[in-house]
C-alpha cells in the first residue's frame, strides 16, 4: 500500500473545474515531483491533500485511511505537513518563535527540542538568526525557515510548494540539497515545482500536470529524457 494515494480527485473553485480526475501515489521514503505550468493545479492538489480544500469527487488516502473530511489540524497531527507556496512565514515573530509555532500540534517537549537541533543543523543560518524578526530575513532564509517550521511538526510526508520560487541559483541549490538531506533522514516528500530541471535531479519519480490532469508520469530519469518535458519545462 502506498503511503499517500490520491485517486480521481475532482476539485472546483465555484464553477472552475481545477482538478479533473488527478490520481497519483507516493511510496514511503520517496521524493515525488509534481510538475506543471502556471495554473496547472499543482497548489490545488497539495491544498486538497492538506484538507484546506474539499474535493467534489475522489479520495486522498494515507496508509489506506481516507483523509477527506478529516479537518486540516488532524491531518497535520497524522504527519502530513505543507510548506506553503510563497513561504508565508510569520513576519512579526522571531525565527525561533516561527519554529515553535511549527511544533504546535506536538506534545513531546523533548522531541521538539531534538527537532529544533535537527533544523538548526540542517540550516545553520537559522541558528545564527534565531532571535531575529522573521520578516527581515532574506528570501532564501525565509524559505529555509518555512521548511524548518514544517519539519518541526515531525512530518512523515512533507508537501512542498515551489520551494525554489524567486531564489537565486546558488540558494536554489542549497534548498535542494536540504530537501535531499531531509529525505535521507526518512521523510517522504511530495515536491511541487516549476523548476523541472532541479526537481527531476532530486526526485525518484515525477508526474506532469496540465490543466488539472496528469498527462505524464514515470521515473525521474525517464521524464528527464522525455522530449515533451524537455521542450516544455527544461528549455531544451
Amino acid at each position: 500500500m502506498a503511503l499517500l494515494e490520491l485517486e480521481d480527485l475532482h476539485v472546483y473553485y465555484g464553477n472552475i473545474h481545477a482538478l479533473k480526475g488527478v490520481s497519483l501515489h507516493v511510496e514511503a521514503g520517496e521524493i515525488v515531483a509534481l510538475l506543471g505550468a502556471n495554473g496547472a493545479g499543482k497548489s490545488t492538489t497539495l491544498n486538497t491533500v492538506s484538507g484546506l480544500l474539499r474535493p467534489r469527487r475522489g479520495s486522498v488516502r494515507l496508509e489506506g485511511d481516507d483523509l477527506i473530511r478529516v479537518p486540516p489540524h488532524r491531518i497535520v497531527e497524522r504527519g502530513v505537513v505543507q510548506v506553503p507556496e510563497g513561504r508565508r512565514i510569520f513576519g512579526q515573530l522571531t525565527v525561533l518563535e516561527n519554529l515553535e509555532m511549527g511544533a504546535f500540534t506536538r506534545t513531546d517537549p523533548q522531541g521538539v527540542k531534538e527537532d529544533l537541533e535537527r533544523v538548526f543543523t540542517l540550516f545553520p543560518r537559522l541558528k545564527e538568526r534565531a532571535g531575529q524578526v522573521a520578516g527581515t530575513l532574506s528570501g532564501g532564509e525565509q524559505q529555509m525557515l518555512a521548511i524548518g517550521r514544517a519539519l518541526m511538526a515531525r512530518p512523515r510526508v512533507l508537501l512542498m510548494d515551489e520551494p525554489s520560487m524567486g531564489l537565486a541559483p546558488l540558494l536554489v541549490e542549497q534548498i535542494f540539497d536540504a530537501i535531499q538531506e531531509i529525505n535521507r533522514q526518512g521523510t517522504t516528500i511530495l515536491l511541487v515545482e516549476q523548476n523541472a530541471y532541479m526537481a527531476l535531479q532530486v526526485a525518484h519519480r515525477g508526474y506532469v500536470l496540465q490543466t488539472g490532469q496528469v498527462v505524464l508520469s514515470g521515473p525521474a530519469e525517464q521524464l528527464r529524457e522525455n522530449p515533451e518535458v524537455k521542450r516544455a519545462y527544461l528549455g531544451g
Binding site: S50, L52, P72, E77, V81, P84, F90, M101, F104
Partner: peptide, 24 residues
C-alpha cells in the same frame, strides 16, 4: 499559553496557521 500562541498565529496568517495544525 499554547492558546495564546495559536491566537498569535491566526492573527498573523490564518491560512498558514490552519496548515500548521491549528484548529481555527
Amino acid at each position: 499559553s499554547r492558546l495564546g500562541r495559536a491566537w498569535m498565529a491566526i492573527r498573523e496568517d490564518e491560512d498558514v496557521a490552519e496548515a500548521l495544525g491549528i484548529n481555527l
